[in-house]
Design a protein around this nucleic acid. Structure first.
Lengths: 245, 245
DNA sequence: AAGCAATGGTTCCCCGCCATACCTTATGGC
DNA sequence: GCCATAAGGTATGGCGGGGAACCATTGCTT
């Protein structure tokens, strides 16, 4: 019957919307998000995560569940907890090799093309929006500071500051939804980047692009900003495809 | 202490990632997604939703919870259930006025700028990706068919077919993540559009843009595709800002 | 030295949701 | 006309997670 056929065709279309309502249980999602914070370098090695009570509230899970997450991270050697006033949960420097298989597992199950394409769209979009609408005075300061921060970065901290620069730009584009999605996809990109070596030559190239990108945004030259962002992403994408394909 | 200050500054940065792990309970999220299906017109008026057992499984909630959702939708006059073989849950034609306050409530709590900007980024990005990477033979067919479908649309069904065209494009861009996000943001856009009148003049303009957009994509002219998509979004955005601001 | 405050650590109870099984209704085929 | 089938409708037990209260530890402040 016609209606039935229509419903079946529609059924395929529904796939984009009718995805599972939660990617996993509360525990798994909370774990994922805290890992994101760490992988994005939002809390650098040695620094403290928010207190358990605050973290639990912000993640929308109970403290009990959050503590299970922290216990797992502790068992994997990623964090350390200290009691008492001015105690807390601290991010440990990842002794290279720890969680290596974890990384393999994670990168094995992501759709690399999906990540790279989505990242490019968001990155280019954020740059274009920032340039087209202009930044507030405070926005200019934040962006400049983030850029300067990448210039004098020690090699070991470059990727983290690079990430922060891009997150800053995404955060300034005027779309919180875009910023949130960028954070998520960027965590995925960082996972991929952690699988390949950091080449100084790429880094210098990247740095020139950062400078040009920020200039274009501040000049409110949207087309230029978009084009630079696109090239920037294409560079990373080519690198990753080359190493991982 | 320096570490403490750093942690506080970091705390602000964490905002983009440390969002609540679930927007609500299972019931609310399932409701939201089914509403999305209806609002996107993925199941047209009079057609049947997937069977309860299938829907529950695809949404990752129990049938009990799903049925609570359907009961709410039934009470609001949006769906009707019929028992027996070839029964099911059917989407009712929305008698204008029903759920009107619901719409007001919903549109009141969305960040219009966020929605419009994010939508533009995704729309432009999807068009650019499709044009840049080219479509498969089947992709070409699907896109053409969706476009043709908007041409001979009765006025009452235009917005639905328009939505389907854009969803098709997003689905063909090679990034499932982008497609999913587009579906979500488009549902929000449709809510906003439902608050303003449908002007035939805008519709004709829109239709010309659709044709040009599809042509640009099929010609693999990414710059043109992006530019048309941008104009297309700007038109809708201006309309919405004018009526709702 | 005493007290306070901020943090991690622990326990308890209750609710919401899930899984499962079963019942009821309507339709088509034998 | 009977029965198989596919759908919605109902009932129950179990458990994961949440909320709240409390304990334990540390270091600053007085």
């Amino acid at each position: 019957m016609a209606g039935n056929t229509g419903a079946r065709e529609g059924g395929d279309r529904l796939g984009a919307v009718l995805r599972p309502v939660r990617a996993g249980n509360g525990f798994e999602e909370a774990l994922e998000q805290i890992l994101q914070v760490v992988r994005l370098g939002l809390v650098p090695d040695g620094e403290r995560l928010p207190a358990e009570r605050e973290l639990a509230e912000r993640l929308g899970v109970s403290r009990v569940t959050l503590r299970e997450v922290l216990r797992v991270l502790h068992d994997q050697g990623l964090v350390e907890s200290r009691r008492g006033r001015y105690g807390g949960t601290f991010v440990l420097r990842r002794s290279d090799g720890a969680g290596e298989d974890e990384l393999r597992r994670r990168t094995a199950e992501v759709d690399i093309e999906d990540v790279l394409r989505f990242r490019e769209v968001l990155e280019v979009g954020a740059a274009g929006l920032c340039a087209a609408h202009g930044l507030s005075g405070e926005g200019v300061v934040r962006l400049r500071r983030a850029l300067d921060h990448t210039r004098d970065a020690p090699l070991a901290d470059y990727r983290r500051r690079d990430t922060l620069l891009h997150l800053t730009l995404a955060g300034l584009c005027g779309s919180p939804s875009l910023a949130a999605q960028y954070a998520a996809v960027r965590a995925g990109v960082n996972d991929l980047l952690d699988c390949i070596p950091l080449l100084v030559r790429n880094l210098e190239h990247s740095q020139r692009q950062h400078t040009a990108l920020v200039e274009a945004v501040l000049d409110r030259d949207a087309d230029a900003a978009r084009e630079i962002a696109r090239e920037h992403c294409a560079g990373t994408a080519a690198l990753l495809r080359g190493f991982l394909a």
